[in-house]
């Protein structure tokens, strides 16, 4: 898909307005997983706004977002950066067009310390 169309799709899924961003960086200042990420919350907002979504789709940063929503909570402008990350993630999944996690594979992956919540969110994240 062309970048422009991809941008529109991401914006539609995110249902938030990147133009509201005043580029203060508070989202990235608050992000608990900042150092692991190649692209940071504020960059997701800015790059989606600029239509530069290809690098985001290819980046591992997508899966490093913990969806802790601290960026959403802290943002003074109500931009909701996590929605953009989630939207890019969804775009990526849709692009893949297949489920990344099959139920039959799950028993092998878990050990006794795996919390049930993880399974639920794993399914939410990795299945269609």
């Amino acid at each position: 898909m062309e970048q422009q169309n991809m941008r529109e799709e991401i914006l539609f899924t995110a249902n938030a307005d990147p133009k509201k961003c005043m580029k203060c960086g508070k989202c990235s200042g608050a992000c608990p997983n900042y150092d692991k990420m190649e692209y940071h919350p504020h960059q997701f907002v800015s790059m989606v706004q600029e239509g530069n979504v290809e690098p985001l789709l290819e980046s591992e940063s997508l899966y490093l977002c913990l969806t802790c929503m601290v960026c959403v909570e802290r943002c003074p402008r109500n931009v909701q950066p996590a929605r953009f990350i989630e939207a890019v993630r969804l775009a990526k999944i849709r692009q893949q067009g297949e489920n990344r996690l099959k139920p039959q594979d799950v028993p092998e992956l878990i050990d006794e310390d795996t919390p049930q919540q993880l399974l639920v969110s794993a399914f939410r994240k990795y299945t269609k």
């Binding site: 508070k26 990235s28 200042g29 608050a30 992000c31 601290v70």
Partner: peptide, 27 residues
């Protein structure tokens, strides 16, 4: 520093400040 403080945590008599530095692209 161009950026915003994301959180401040009081710890052992210090204030742990976590912030973004947008120009250097670091936390």
């Amino acid at each position: 520093i161009k950026g915003m403080v994301g959180k401040v945590v009081p710890e052992n008599g210090k204030l742990k400040v976590q912030a973004s530095d947008l120009l250097e692209n670091r936390q």
